[in-house]
Amino acid sequence: MINIDDFKQEVECIYKDEKYSVRDNGAVFRHPRDGRRPRKYDNFWTFGKPNDKHGYMEIASVRVHIIVATAFHGPKLTKEYVVDHIDTNRRNNRPDNLRWVTRLENALENPITRKRIIMRCGSIEAFLANPALLRENDVTPDFSWMRTVTDAEAQVSKERLLAWAESDKQASGGTLGEWLYGRQPISQNNGQLSSVDEIDKLQSDSLNDWGQIPPFGKEHPIEPEQRKRNIMLSLTSRAAQEIYFYDDKPNEYPCTPQEYSGDPLTAYAANLTENAVYWRNNNGDREYVVDKYGFSEDRNSLYVMTKSAYVWRSQDDGDSMPVPVANLNRDEFSEDELNYQLGEVIYEDNLFVHKRVETGFMPKEYLEEIFDECVGKKNKKIDKN
Rank of each mutant, 00 (worst) to 15 (best):
I4M: 05
D6T: 11
F7V: 12
Q9P: 03
E10Q: 14
I14C: 04
Y15N: 04
D24T: 05
D24E: 04
H31A: 11
P32N: 07
P32L: 09
R33I: 14
D34F: 04
G35V: 11
R36H: 10
R37V: 15
P38Y: 06
K40G: 11
F47V: 14
K49P: 00
D52G: 09
V82N: 01
V83H: 00
V83N: 01
N97Y: 02
L98D: 05
T102Y: 01
L108F: 01
L108T: 15
E109G: 07
N110Y: 02
P111Q: 01
T113I: 15
T113V: 15
I118A: 01
A126N: 15
N130Q: 10
P131Q: 03
R135M: 06
D138G: 11
V139E: 12
S144Q: 08
R147W: 02
V149M: 11
T150G: 10
D151C: 08
A154R: 00
V156D: 09
K158W: 08
E166M: 08
G174L: 04
L180P: 08
L180M: 14
P185C: 07
I186T: 14
N189S: 14
S195Y: 05
K201H: 07
Q203N: 12
Q203E: 13
D205F: 14
L207R: 07
D209C: 10
I213F: 01
P214K: 11
E219L: 10
R227P: 05
R238G: 05
F245P: 01
D247I: 09
K249F: 04
T256K: 00
Q258R: 06
E259K: 10
L265K: 01
L265G: 08
A267D: 10
T273N: 07
Y278Q: 09
K292Q: 13
G294C: 07
F295T: 11
N300T: 15
M305Q: 07
Y310H: 15
R313L: 13
Q315C: 09
G318Q: 06
V323E: 06
N327C: 12
L328N: 03
N329D: 12
E332A: 09
S334H: 03
E335F: 08
D336L: 13
E337A: 05
Q341D: 09
L342K: 03
Y347C: 09
L351W: 00
L351Y: 01
L351V: 13
K355R: 12
G360P: 10
P363N: 04
L367F: 04
E368I: 04
E369P: 07
D372W: 00
E373T: 10
V375C: 09
G376V: 10
N379G: 06
K380Q: 14
K381N: 12
K381H: 11
